[in-house]
Each structure stands twice: as C-alpha cells, then as structure tokens.
Amino acid sequence: MAFEPVVLFFLLGVIAGLAKSDLKIPTAVYEALSVYLLLAIGITGGVKLAESTLLPLILPGLAILLVGCLIPLICYPVLQYFGGLKRADSASLAAHYGSVSVVTFSVAVAFLAQAGLDYEGHMVVFLVLLEIPALVVGILLARAGMAGKTRWGKTLREVFFGKSIFLLIGGLIIGFAAGPDHIGPLEPLFFDLFKGLLAFFLLEMGLVAAAKIADFRYYGKFLIGFAIVMPVFSAVLGVFLGWGLGLSLGGTLLLATLYASASYIAAPAAMRIAVPEANPALSIGASLGVTFPFNIFVGVPLYFWMADLLYSMGG
C-alpha cells in the first residue's frame, strides 16, 4: 500500500506543540503557504479540466452536491439527539462536517501521486462547490423556527470572497485558461514544489492542532467518537457514489475524502458570523483536533482500501 511521508510533518508539528518546543512558523509564512496551496490545487485542477469535456459532468455533479447537502442533515439529528448538543452547536458542527477541507484533499492528492494514480480534474471543481451547500444547510438548521435575522449578505461575502474559495476558483480559471500547453513555466513552482511546501504547511497545522488536541479533553467522549465515526460513514457514501458514477479509482478516493473531511477554515468563519451563538471551540476542536489527524493518518489509506476493494469486486 502507498505510504505518503508528507503526513509525518504533521506529526512532527504535533509533537513540537505538545512538548512546548519553541518551534514556530512565522504567521506571514503560514499565510503565504496557504495562498500557495490554494492556488496550486486550483491550477492543477484547472489544467486537468482543460483536458476534459464539461457537459457530461452536470448530472454527476448534481448527485455529488445532493449527497453533500445530505451529510449535514444526517449529522444534525445525531448531534442533537444522541449527543445532547444545543441546536446552534449541532447546526454549526453539521456545517463543518458537511463542508470540506482543502488540506485533507491535498494530502489525498499527494497520496495518489505517490501511488501513481490519476484522477479527474473536475474533482477540484467539486472541492470548491462542496464547501458551500453544507454551510447554507447548517445556517438554515440553526435558524429554522427561530426569531432573529441571519446575516446572509455578510455570510455569503465571507464564503465567496474569503481567501479559500476565491483563490481556488481563481487558480481553477487560470489553470483552465492556460491549459496543458501554456502552463509550462509555472510547473516547477505549482506542481514540482507542491509536496515540499505541503510538508511545511502540515508542520504548522500540527502546531495548531496540538493546541486543539490539548483543549479537546473537555469536550467529552461523544464528540470524539462522532469526529471519527462520521467521516468514515461519509467516506462510505463517497466510495459508493464515486463507483456508481463511474469515476476512476483516484477520483473516488478524492470524493470519499471530500465527504469525510471537515472544514476548519471556511466553515468557522461563516458560522461565526451567521450563527454566533454556537461555540466555535467545539467545532474547530472536533474538526481540527480529531477529524483532520484521523483523516490524514488513517482515513485516506482506509478510504483508498475501501474504494480499491469495491473496484476489484465490482470491476
């Protein structure tokens, strides 16, 4: 089975954080790395997209988005009735788990590169599209039957012009416009250096996650269990849907990873504005402290194994 060494940098960061090492990645470097990562993922997808035809993607795209809306609707009652969480907290967590994580996706992309497998370029389009519906569903769940107006304008501005969606879409368009023929000069920066810079980014993520892991003991067993079981459940949906839609094995792994991942950049910002009464520490703690490390160490190889099994059985 393919092993992706880049995740070890995350572990290194976690150890440094827990051991209170003086290791720090300067904030400006972290910001620059996140800009790079978003652009690189966007451009890579855009170049692949330029090689494929778009029209046959519409129906599968709708199915993928529909399941993306379904995930928060499954999370919400589970959190509220089994977890005993407040309405706002359940809705906010549902939005986080329905939305997606770009870095988890990047780790899966690196995993596929290591395994020598290709994937469909339009998976990056779904990465962008899947960030949004779950946030809207989460806000509606929090607001249903409650007084008080929702700041839709500010929330949507935060979602669409927040740097993650903005740079992903921007990179996608640039990659698509350049196509495989003209992307040459940008290749060394955006393709060849991708893994190395992802390693730096994961080191910083490890430092940040270490702080969340330390906080998480206050949140209880239910939430920790949820943060592990829910991604696996969502990934199973993704594996079957990807297989049913006839995606490649690589594409199915990415779809499963998208469904399994939980947002910790776009969703926290949107939820803080739209559902301010939800406790942000719960959702960031669960998504960054548990689900993200679980996904990159256990999840991605597990989802690959599940997809591989289905493909070898189903042909």
């Binding site: 904030t27 972290y30 940040v208 702080a211 906080d215 910790y264 950049i265 926290p268 910002a269 803080r272 942000p280 520490a281 960031i284």
Partner: peptide, 11 residues
C-alpha cells in the same frame, strides 16, 4: 473565551 493565539483569523 480561551487563549487567542493570533495564528489565524479564527484564533
């Protein structure tokens, strides 16, 4: 509201 580390916007 806990420790605010100033590393990223949420924090």
């Amino acid at each position: 509201h806990g420790k605010r580390r100033g590393k990223w916007q949420q924090d």
